[in-house]
Simulated scan of single mutants.
Amino acid sequence: MLRPDTGLPSFSGGPLIPVATYFLVITVLAGLVTISPGASPPPILGMMWGVGLVALTAGALSIESVSPRSLFPPVRTFGPAIGVVAAFWGLYNLVALALALGGVSGFEASLSRTAAHPLLYLAALFSSLLFTAIPEEFLFRAYLQQKFTRLVGGTTVRAVLSGIGLAAALFALFHLPRWFLASGHGVSSALAGRLIGLTLMGLAYGSVYALTGNLWLVALFHASMNYPPLLVTVTVPSELHLVVSVLENTVMVSLVYLTLRLSGHDSTPFTASQRGMSASTGE
């Protein structure tokens, strides 16, 4: 079962709680980036940040009278989630191999670092899943997206789209502290491209979550996009990054939608469905 049988949580707090939570997260992140201004933080700091992000989100949910545990789907949904993500990357690798064999620039018919060092890759992927993808998706999709959806209306398509869009915009802005403080890029055309790419990614993750309500699925997509399991060497020219991002995210959402239809699930947005159920509140 890819889609857990739960509904939109009944948050008890007002709009100030998610706003305060987000600004607190940004403030803490900016402080950590100032302490460790490198391109990537030391592993121990990254792990501390992941745990801290979960703790901050859990604190906000407690104020909202929602059990954090209720937003994590059953373990039985993890296997189907792996299957969908594996199908996505299987298709991705087939296309990449075909382009490489066809001599398309940017695609080489040679083993990637992932294929050459699979154990190191799996370790990096697991670390990204545990300390980056799950904490960030717990905050942006399981909490903020659903909270905004509830504030706008809860059971309407407009509310669902608003929740997806607001969470995606905040997800993009969330990455600015490292862009400015650590990478030193400043304000440039590259910043606009970066923000657009991150927003598209947030919209895709939000759509996947709205369709399935499966935190494992969206976190697996997030982690694997951070560390793509490509078997051949792929170097996308910078001028094509946005085009490739649109294609990747469109295929991702389409595959999830098609999977739901083929498996007999209702393909209407998860958080907009009228099921007469809410995620359990309290402990």
Rank of each mutant, 00 (worst) to 15 (best):
I44Q: 13
F140T: 00
G186R: 06
L29H: 10
L99F: 02
S267L: 12
T34I: 15
G153E: 10
Y143H: 07
F126H: 00
F171G: 01
G102K: 03
V157W: 15
G83R: 13
T6W: 15
S105T: 08
M252G: 09
L161K: 04
R178Q: 10
L144S: 07
M201D: 13
A98V: 02
I17G: 11
G103I: 01
L125Q: 07
H185R: 08
S67R: 06
P229S: 07
T149A: 03
A20V: 04
G163F: 09
L94R: 04
S67G: 15
R3E: 13
N214Y: 05
A272I: 00
V160N: 10
L144F: 11
W179H: 06
L53T: 01
T77D: 07
A81P: 03
L32S: 09
E108I: 15
A133P: 05
L170P: 12
V160K: 08
D266H: 03
L94P: 10
P177L: 04
S189D: 09
M47K: 08
A81I: 08
P15F: 01
E248K: 14
L217R: 03
L122C: 07
A81C: 04
L56H: 11
L56M: 11
M225W: 11
L258W: 10
K147T: 01
G7A: 04
F11P: 08
H222V: 09
L91R: 03
L176E: 06
L240P: 11
S110Q: 12
M277W: 14
V256W: 06
A204I: 11
T27L: 12
S188K: 07
